[in-house]
Amino acid sequence: MKSFGMINKELVKLTPFSWDAIYPVLIRLEEWGTLTRGAYLRGEASLQFSTKESADSMRQPLPELGQVALTVLSSVDPANPYGLAADWPHSAHKEKYSRKPGNYLVLYGGRWLYWIENNGKRIFRAAADDAENAEDSGAALLKNVLYVMLRRQKKAKIVIDEWNGSPVLETDTGNRLLELGAERDMKSLVFWAH
């Protein structure tokens, strides 16, 4: 529940239980004050249940452009809809989208920015747009993402071999990451935990 933030009929379809079996449990949790029900998603006809904290969070306005949120989401996190409730996006690169540990999605202001495979070995950038097309700012964002991953995973280092299907050291982004503190290790780049 904490990972999803909301339960509805569509989410229950992903479980081995029917809505009719889950619904009485949700009602009982509402009576105990653990959950609250409401209409959190527009266009969703079925009842929706959430914790009070999650419901309050969903009612908050989206951040302004100056407060764009960067989200690092494990591909196996239940909050990740891709591969379950939503199709993986189309790509021209060699991504191997899959819901397995070590793969991450990076969202920037709600838009898909990076796909990271195998704990950073291969990184793919989503199609650049006008708001985020500068290599400098993209590399700086990526550096922040890698440090988030290092802290979450409690790892000593992240080794990057490929950028958009090419050897990382043969790319402009790889060169920019070197300038931002990455170390060269043969044909790879390494970011160390602080």
Rank of each mutant, 00 (worst) to 15 (best):
Y40F: 15
G83I: 01
S46A: 15
I27S: 01
T71V: 06
D87E: 08
Q48M: 08
K96G: 11
D87C: 02
V76N: 05
Y82S: 07
L70D: 11
L107Y: 08
V72P: 01
R28V: 10
Y104K: 13
D77Q: 00
V68D: 01
E44L: 01
P81Y: 10
E53W: 09
A55P: 14
G66A: 15
G33P: 10
L70Y: 11
V106I: 13
V25S: 09
S75I: 00
L35A: 08
E53M: 10
A86P: 01
S54L: 03
R42L: 09
P89Y: 00
A92Q: 13
K96L: 07
L35Q: 06
K52T: 05
N103I: 03
Y40G: 12
P81D: 04
K52P: 03
T36W: 03
V76P: 00
E53Y: 13
I22H: 07
T34H: 13
K52H: 09
E53G: 09
K96V: 06
L41T: 05
Y97M: 07
D77L: 03
E64A: 11
G102D: 02
T34P: 07
T51N: 07
E53S: 04
L62F: 13
Q48G: 01
L107I: 02
V76G: 00
G33C: 13
T36G: 11
G83K: 04
E53K: 14
G33A: 06
T51R: 12
R42A: 11
R28Y: 13
P81V: 06
V68E: 10
S46L: 12
L84H: 13
Y82C: 08
G38T: 09
E30D: 06
G33N: 14
G38N: 09
A79I: 08
A45E: 15
